[in-house]
């Protein structure tokens, strides 16, 4: 088996080829048109083919040219930040900002290796108060303070 010498090239290639193929595949459903009257598929087909070509070159290069390793990958940070954001999206309408904001703050603060409960709760309270006052009262952003789950 040949060895991957440049993991960055390799994984970038994988992403480019995958996304390029998806776009190329979906484009086949749209009318191509001609170079005079370009259809909705024309430009995307050109672009996705180009992306696949770039991916293939990068893939080939990853076996030839020596590269540097990708380096540390923080699954903790990634997971915490993303789940905090998604969680916020799930509860913001039902529970309202008064619950969703502190949840977002405390869950995401957990992503730091120096997480402390007391600090985070204080930060959550402060930020929630600030946002409600500035965004909702001050700037009139139409967001629910208390969500539909509690108002009935």
């Amino acid at each position: 088996m040949t060895k991957i010498r440049n993991p960055k090239d390799f994984w970038t290639a994988v992403i480019y080829i995958t996304i390029g193929s998806i776009f190329l595949f979906v484009s086949r459903d749209y009318p191509m048109g001609s170079s005079l009257k370009m259809g909705p598929a024309y430009f995307p087909t050109v672009l996705s083919s180009l992306l696949i070509i770039i991916g293939v070159i990068s893939l080939a290069r990853s076996f030839v040219q020596q590269g540097t390793p990708i380096g540390s990958f923080t699954f903790r940070g990634l997971l915490v930040v993303i789940s905090a954001t998604v969680l916020f999206g799930l509860i913001v309408r039902g529970a309202g900002l008064i619950v969703a904001l502190p949840t977002l703050v405390v869950v995401s603060a957990y992503g730091s290796i120096r997480f402390r409960w007391g600090e985070s709760l204080a930060l959550a309270a402060g930020l929630t108060l600030f946002c409600v006052l500035v965004f909702l009262k001050g700037l009139g952003v139409p967001l629910p303070i208390v969500g539909s789950w509690f108002t009935r």
Binding site: V105, S108, F135
Partner: peptide
């Protein structure tokens, strides 16, 4: 930074939600 990034996240979430009001 541990105080800063939850705040950034909060502003991002509120900002993006208030854009079109869709989760």
């Amino acid at each position: 930074y541990r105080f800063l990034f939850p705040a950034i996240l909060v502003f991002c979430a509120i900002g993006v939600f208030s854009l079109k009001n869709v989760e």
